Simulated assay, not measured.
Amino acid sequence: MKRQFSYSRTFAVVLARDLKIAFKNKGDIFNPLLFFIIVITLFPLGIGPDLNTLAKIAAGIIWVAAVLSAMLSLERLFKADFDDGSLEQMLLSPQPLTLIIFAKVFAHWLITGLPVILLSPLLALLLNLPDNAYGALMLTLLLGTPILSLVGAIGVALTVALKKGGVLLSLLILPLYIPVLIFSTSAINAASLNMAYDGHLAIISALLATSLTLAPIAIGASLRVSTN
C-alpha cells in the first residue's frame, strides 16, 4: 500500500513540476498552439474560398497541423532536465524510470495535445468540415495525440545530448507518425461520407496501446544511452 502511494505521489510530483515549469515559460504552451492555429487559418487563404475543396482536405490539414505543432514542442521535453542535471537524478532515482517518463509525457500531452483537441472543432469550421465528421475528428485526436507525444519522446531521448538535434529529431519521428496520420484522416473522411470508421479507430487504439506499452521502455533505454 505504501509503495502504491509512493508511486502515485512520484507521478503527481513529476507531473506538477513539469506543468509548473511550462506555465512559467508561457511560450512552451502558446507557441505550439499559435502555430497550430496559424497553419490551419493560412490554408483557406492560400487555397481559396471554395468550400467543397476545403471540405475534402480538411481532415488532412488539421492532422498535419497537429503533427507539426506537437513536433515544435518536443525538443524541450527532456532538454531542460538534461542541461541542469535533473535528468541524471531521474535516471538514478529509486523510483521506476517508466513512471517518471509517463508523468513527463502526460504533462507534454496536457500542454500540447489537449489544447489542440479543444480548439480543433472551432478551426474545422474554417475548413467547412462536414457536420457528421466532427465526432470522428475528436475521437481520432483523442486517441492519436497521445501517440504523437509517446513516439516523439523516443526521438527526443535519442537526441537529447545533441546541441542541434532538431533536424535529426524530425527525420527520426516523422516516418513513425505516418500510420497515425493515414488512419486518422481516413477515419474522418469515412465519417464525412457516412461510412463506418470503427476499423480505423480500432487500428489507432491498437497503436496507442502499443505505444503505451513499449514507448516508455524505449524512452528509458534511449535516455540511458544518450547520457552515458
Rank of each mutant, 00 (worst) to 15 (best):
I182L: 02
G220R: 02
M1A: 15
N189M: 06
H108P: 01
V67I: 15
G152V: 13
F106G: 03
L162M: 09
I111F: 06
A107I: 02
A80T: 14
H108L: 08
L97R: 02
I217T: 05
D131N: 11
N132P: 09
V13F: 14
L110F: 12
S226F: 05
T10D: 11
T210M: 06
L193N: 01
I217F: 10
A59D: 04
A209D: 00
I188N: 02
K26P: 13
P44E: 09
A70M: 13
I40D: 04
T10G: 01
L122G: 14
G155K: 01
V160A: 01
K24W: 15
L142T: 12
L181V: 00
D198G: 10
D198E: 12
F23G: 07
I21L: 11
A206T: 13
L158W: 01
G85E: 08
A133F: 11
L68N: 04
L181G: 01
F30M: 13
E75G: 05
R224C: 09
T41S: 14
A80N: 15
A124D: 08
L42F: 13
H108A: 11
Q95P: 10
T185G: 03
T159K: 04
D81L: 02
G48L: 02
L123D: 07
D18T: 08
A80E: 08
L150P: 07
E75Y: 12
I47M: 11
A215Q: 00
A58Q: 04
T145I: 11
V116A: 09
P96N: 01
L162S: 03
A218I: 03
K20Q: 13
S186Q: 04
A153M: 04
F23S: 13
S222I: 06
A59M: 07
I61V: 14
L142Q: 07
A107P: 07
F5Y: 15
L150M: 06
A190H: 04
M71R: 02
I154P: 01
F11C: 05
L34V: 12
P216V: 07
L208G: 05
F102I: 05
A124L: 14
L212N: 03
L143E: 06
K24Y: 06
D131R: 12
S192H: 04
S186C: 11
Q4T: 14
D81W: 00
L119Q: 05
G152P: 03
I21G: 10
L141V: 12
W63Q: 00
L42E: 07
T98A: 13
Q89Y: 09
L99Q: 10
L77E: 09
L125K: 15
K164N: 05
